[in-house]
Each structure stands twice: as structure tokens, then as C-alpha cells.
């Protein structure tokens, strides 16, 4: 393990471990924090702009960034080290020692229209009752906040979003639903998320968006990416149907 202090001059020590012969994970911390997320997003951006030869892709998560690579190409590079792990670590440590780019304004802002309640949000009442709120108050609070996409995981395009008002916190269902329709907006604990396709799931469903959260025909299939800033807007059924027809 490589212990280091502070990527980009911060005092957050990072640690690198091998996940497989073809991947390493950088640990930036152990708790969910916005500062940490920003650091991971920045580190990822700098790395992708300054890739080492053999880099395939990266996967940001709550407190980690995982780097996938082709060991054959890495071994041919002139990075210091005798193994692929050492060579990739050397490059990552070099990135950590560069100046942090101050470009946080580049965060993508996305507005998601949602039809709340009814058949599209069968657990809206549960969320309201759990928190001693009316259904209308739940909608007001949910649409008032700005959310940060922590990571995309579970199924293609599923965004885990943090920054939710704790007045809406609701535990997951004890027994997951066998089928949650695509577009369903849910709450689990302190996070909110959107099911991009029909899957089983245990989140409390409060509404549905007409947007396609994942579409293989787009150049970026997943509508949301780690680090994006998201807000929700309540729409009525006519508006919902108008979206679907587009």
C-alpha cells in the first residue's frame, strides 16, 4: 500500500490498492462528504486529461476512484516501477502532486421533471407519514433541494444522489418490490435516485420522470454522471405525457 499525504496539496491522505491485475483503487476517505466528492471529481478530470499509456477507464464512487488499465501496455511504458501496479501508482501519485485545477463551475446541472404520487409514486404517502409531513410538503421539500450525483451504480444509469433534506429520510423497504418501472424516483435513507430501467428494488417510490435516464443510442447513454448537480421539478400528467410523445 502506498500512503501519501494530500493530492493537490490537500491534507487528505490517499491510499492505493490493487483491485485486480487490471485495476487499482484510490481511497480518498471513508465517509460521504461533498469536499471529498469534489476532490475525486477533480482528480478524475485531471487524470483523464493526463492519462498514462494503457489507461482504459475510471469509475468514481463515494470515497474512491478506480482506474482500469491494460497491463501489457503499462508494462511497456517508461513509468518507474517493476510491476504494473507500481507503474500505475507512480502515475497516480504524480497526478496527486500537481496543482489542483480550480474549475468547479464545470459541474453539469440537470433539471429532472417528475410526476409525484398517484400510481407513479405509490410510496409518497409512506415517506410523508414516516416524516410527519403531508404529501404536498414532501413534494415541496424534494423539489427545493439541489442534489449531487455521488456515483452511477446498481444498473446502467442508476444515479445515487446525496444532499437530500433529512426531513425526507425514509428507510428502504424491508421487502423489495419485484418490479419497479423505468423512470421511478425513489428515496432510500438519505439518498434519492432514479431507476433507469425496470428492475427489482427496495427504494420508496415517490414519483416518475418521463426522461430516459439511460439510452444506448445516445453518445453518453447515462443521462447523469458522477459529480452532476440535479434539481427536480413537479409536473402534471399533461406535461408528463407531452414528454413521452417527444
Amino acid at each position: 500500500m502506498n500512503e501519501r499525504v494530500g493530492p493537490f496539496g490537500t491534507n487528505i491522505p490517499i491510499k492505493i490498492y490493487g483491485l485486480s491485475e487490471k485495476s487499482v483503487t484510490i481511497i480518498f476517505g471513508t465517509t460521504i462528504e461533498n469536499d471529498l466528492l469534489d476532490l475525486i471529481t477533480d482528480f478524475n478530470r485531471v487524470l483523464l486529461r493526463n492519462p498514462f499509456s494503457g489507461l482504459i477507464t475510471t469509475v468514481p464512487a463515494y470515497t474512491t476512484l478506480t482506474v482500469f488499465f491494460d497491463p501489457l501496455t503499462v508494462m511497456l511504458s517508461d513509468l518507474p516501477g517493476v510491476s504494473g501496479f507500481e507503474k500505475v501508482s507512480a502515475h497516480l501519485n504524480r497526478i496527486a502532486q500537481t496543482e489542483r485545477e480550480k474549475s468547479k463551475t464545470t459541474a453539469n446541472e440537470v433539471l429532472i421533471p417528475v410526476y409525484y404520487g398517484g400510481d407513479f409514486g405509490r410510496d409518497l404517502l409512506t415517506v410523508a407519514r414516516t416524516n410527519n409531513l403531508s404529501e404536498a410538503e414532501v413534494i415541496d421539500i424534494h423539489t427545493a433541494g439541489q442534489y449531487t450525483v455521488f456515483m452511477i451504480g446498481f444498473v446502467p444509469g442508476f444515479a445515487y444522489m446525496g444532499g437530500m433534506d433529512t426531513r425526507l429520510s425514509t428507510p428502504r423497504k424491508a421487502v423489495p418490490n419485484a418490479k419497479i418501472p423505468a423512470g421511478s424516483v425513489g428515496i432510500a435513507g438519505n439518498q434519492t435516485g432514479i431507476y433507469p430501467m425496470e428492475t427489482p428494488g427496495g427504494w420508496q417510490i415517490i414519483g416518475k420522470t418521463p426522461l430516459k435516464m439511460f439510452d444506448v443510442n445516445r453518445s453518453q447513454p447515462s443521462l447523469l454522471q458522477g459529480g452532476d448537480k440535479v434539481t427536480f421539478k413537479a409536473i402534471d400528467l399533461n406535461e408528463f405525457n407531452a414528454y413521452v410523445e417527444i
Binding site: 452511477i152 444498473v155 446502467p156 439511460f214 447513454p221 447515462s222 454522471q225
Partner: peptide, 10 residues
């Protein structure tokens, strides 16, 4: 399919 892992594509 390796290049879409960050979008949760296996």
C-alpha cells in the same frame, strides 16, 4: 464493454 463502467454498464 470496458469504457462505460462509470455509467454502471457491466
Amino acid at each position: 464493454r470496458y469504457r462505460y463502467l462509470a455509467q454502471a454498464v457491466p
